[in-house]
């Protein structure tokens, strides 16, 4: 039984042990603090100056990471709360991502920017967001997200293997959940990059849901209620790579597709997934793909207000029921 945060921590230990060219930078990442969410615990003691607690300078931290990458090393940069990645937007989009192609030949920039995302912790409007959508469609930039089903070490290897900067989103609530666990009703398997969570022994599902790592448990709660109380069978696809949108397996026979996205409405990842699926599934879909997002509003601090804005299990369940009714 390993919590996601412990799993990530172990993956970072293994990565830095096996590859001496990897550096890790971020605010308060050194021991004994070990990062705001303890994901970097034990690294500074073990790997010395390759692990650096930095000043509060998200833009320059990302730039220093890009510089290390440019000089032939690899860098993992931790943004304490994903909301603050806005401060590094220029370095990530105008320098790190563009540098892979703006010099007329491929320039490798092995840089991973880790961004703890998401709400449901009462941290309020500037410490709770899912900023993935702001980085979709940036040339030279790939987006990944931690899930309970994907080995973090393999994801780090993949991201560095791309030779281009990657944002790696990690939901803060997910940190406290167990790796590789679903629910007593459902099983999971990996089909290429994508985790497929399904009802064991069931036939064709009534609805296939697609979501990102941070929403897995809320979506599973909705799937359980839909099964037990509404008699609807759902299957779930969870890609670790968010953008470019990877191939999502097995949707050809899906009676309905629903994309669940914790980002606020407007210019969303969910819409990007639907854009990728429509040409492929056109002619087979019985109704438009359902897009579920957080409300178009700031994320309040008070739990009862926060709950109303963010995607919850009951809102997923209601949306699926309505689509299939």
């Amino acid at each position: 039984m390993t919590r996601v945060s412990e799993h990530l921590n172990q993956a970072l230990h293994d990565l830095m042990e096996s590859d001496p060219s990897v550096h890790l930078l971020g605010e308060d990442v050194s021991d004994p603090y070990g990062g705001a969410f303890k994901v970097t615990r034990g690294l500074s003691g073990r790997f010395g100056s390759r692990v650096r607690s930095t000043p509060l300078s998200e833009g320059a931290i990302a730039g220093v990471g890009a510089g290390l990458a440019l000089a032939g090393d690899k860098a993992i940069v931790e943004i304490m709360f994903a909301d603050f990645v806005a401060l590094a937007f220029d370095q990530i989009t105008n320098f790190a991502a563009k540098s892979t192609s703006m010099y007329g030949r491929p320039v490798p920039v092995p840089l991973v920017v880790r961004c703890p995302t998401g709400g449901n912790r009462g941290y309020g409007p500037t410490h709770s967001q899912n900023p993935q959508k702001h980085f979709i469609g940036v040339p030279g930039l790939s987006l990944f997200e931690m899930t309970p089903f994907h080995d973090a070490g393999e994801l780090f290897s993949r991201m560095f293997g791309l030779g281009r900067p990657c944002l790696f989103f990690e939901d803060k609530v997910l940190y406290t959940r167990q790796m590789y666990r679903t629910d007593d009703l459902f099983r999971f398997e990996l089909v290429d990059d994508v985790a497929r969570v399904y009802l064991d022994g069931a036939g064709r599902p009534d609805c296939t849901l697609v979501t990102h790592g941070g929403l897995v448990h809320r979506t599973l709660d909705a799937m359980r209620a839909l099964l037990l109380e509404d008699d609807l069978i759902c299957e779930l696809l969870v890609p670790a790579q968010l953008y470019p949108v990877p191939h999502l397996p097995g949707l050809e026979d899906a009676p309905h597709v629903c994309v669940v996205d914790d980002g606020t409405e407007g210019g969303t990842w969910a819409a990007e997934v639907a854009t990728a699926l429509y040409p492929r599934l056109w002619g087979r879909l019985r109704r438009p793909i359902t897009l579920i997002n957080s409300a178009d509003g700031v994320i309040p601090a008070a739990p009862h207000l926060e709950r109303e804005v963010l995607v919850q299990a009951d809102s997923i369940r209601a949306a699926v029921r309505e689509a299939l009714s």
Partner: peptide, 28 residues
């Protein structure tokens, strides 16, 4: 404004290069 040749690199956004140069200097 955007040249990368051997160990010479230019970019067009003001100030953007200094953090990158600091990262390179850290390595050097």
């Amino acid at each position: 404004q955007h040249i990368y040749h051997r160990r010479f690199l230019s970019t067009g956004v003001q100030g953007e290069s200094l953090p990158v140069a600091t990262g390179v200097a850290l390595k050097l």
